[in-house]
Amino acid sequence: MKLPLPPWVRPRALIALLATCAALALGPLLHSDVYIHNLLTLTFIGIAAALAWNWLGGYLGQVSFGHAAMFGLGGFVAAKAEISMGMPMVFAWCFGGVIAGLYALVWGHPTLRLRGPYFSIATIGVGEATRLVGTYWDWLTGGSSGTSLPMHPNLKFTLYWYALALAAVAMAASYALRRSSLGLALLAIKSDVDAASDVGVSSTRLQDLVLFLSGAMIGVCGASYGSYFSYIEPGDMFGFDRSISWVLMGVIGGIGTIAGPALGAIIFVLLRQYLIASYPQLYLGLYGILLVLVILFEPLGLTGLSLRVLRRARPDLIVSGSET
């Protein structure tokens, strides 16, 4: 049987993604551990967010320290849409995501002219300003006392599958963005914007597109996070440490790689869960050490590490290029 796939899709990657999702989808039917169930749900949301952050930070090399702005906006807009307008949950998520994506364009279209550290500094400003406005605008966010979302029996349990689907979509989008011919154009922009324009890459439009997708996906993550906890509060949703966490996930897993940030998100969420319970004062310090180690020894993070191991074990498997 021949599937009508675009030529850049490796069937093996598609099968791996589908198989992983199927196994994870069946998981809750086989065990009844609520703690693991919840931890996995949070991990899925983390994976989707880290991958979305990587589209901008990794593929385009525009490292954002302000993505919590879209996470929070998506969360509160979806909550408002669900409560005041009675929108069904998934529609409200998408609505929140679109608004968050548009918001990203509003500040990002002018800001993306800056590159590297200058862009990063601008995003810190955007993130903090959004947090303050969010706290002040209590008609949207409920101010410092936050917003409560409708609770349904069993919702938390079923959200597992929604979160899994979200992570799967983010994974597929990461793959498509990087492997299709768009991905090469993004890497070209990352390497040299002007030279990319000189060979026909419309840098401004592509950067805007990626920014929108990244912001929208992060917004949907914020919305699902809100539904999951059924209570959200601006200080937490727009928090700076939330933005930092995606940078960390990306760096730990391998910035700019397709699946690295997902790996980073898994490590990050699990590690944090363990550390917060056991050494609440230490955990940020340990992340700091981990970050320094990764940057010093393996800039491509865990992905780089596993490639290195694989290359040593089976040198015949990996060639330097990727012409297939």
Partner: peptide, 22 residues
């Protein structure tokens, strides 16, 4: 483009300018 192979360097240009498919 230092982060792309020599082949990919040429592919970017060909994809963006020539209007050809993959």
């Amino acid at each position: 483009f230092a982060n792309l192979t020599i082949f990919e360097n040429a592919v970017v240009a060909a994809v963006q300018c020539s209007g050809l498919d993959h």
